[in-house]
């Protein structure tokens, strides 16, 4: 349903300095789109988790950002991709407390809670791509799961 206006930026994720750029970039993009302060913070935090996953587990990769709209509602879509070893057990990786590279084991599962849409594609041996989208002004979301 929603239409993406193409890729707007592509940022490399090769070092922990790159994580800083990723956070700043997402912050600016979300602010420009009119995200509230709390929603900006959630999205930037999710981006930070996912970018760190890309760096630590994927051996580096990139983030692409795209503005998306659906029914007049704007959003920001972030795609993190790497060509690392992939995630062997996705369900386990998404569950809380699971960690293989430091952090409090909140990386993937935690990031999922901070965004509206979340999809992972992973192929063992050839890489992982995580795509998340958050929407502006969908005021309080009614998500009863999690």
């Amino acid at each position: 349903m929603d239409t993406a206006a193409g890729v707007e930026a592509r940022l490399p994720i090769r070092s922990d300095m790159d994580l800083v750029w990723v956070r700043q970039h997402v912050r600016h993009a979300a602010a420009k789109l009119g995200f509230s302060l709390v929603d900006q913070t959630k999205l930037v935090t999710a981006a930070s988790e996912l970018a760190r996953n890309t760096l630590v587990h994927g051996g580096g990769g990139q983030m692409e950002t795209a503005q998306v709209t659906t029914g007049g509602n704007g959003g920001l879509r972030l795609t993190f991709s790497d060509s690392g070893p992939g995630i062997p057990d996705l369900d386990r990786a998404l569950s809380d407390g699971y960690t293989s590279g430091g952090g409090l084991g909140m990386g993937l599962g935690g990031a999922r809670r901070l965004v509206h849409d979340f999809t992972v594609e992973t192929v063992p041996g050839s890489g992982t791509s995580v795509r998340v989208t958050s929407w502006v002004s969908r005021p309080p979301r009614l998500r009863e799961d999690v």
Binding site: T45, S48, E49, R52, G103, L104, M106
Partner: peptide, 13 residues
């Protein structure tokens, strides 16, 4: 500090 992710959270803990 504008965001605390799980990494910084762990450092604080």
């Amino acid at each position: 500090v504008e965001i605390v992710d799980s990494f910084l959270g762990r450092v604080l803990a």
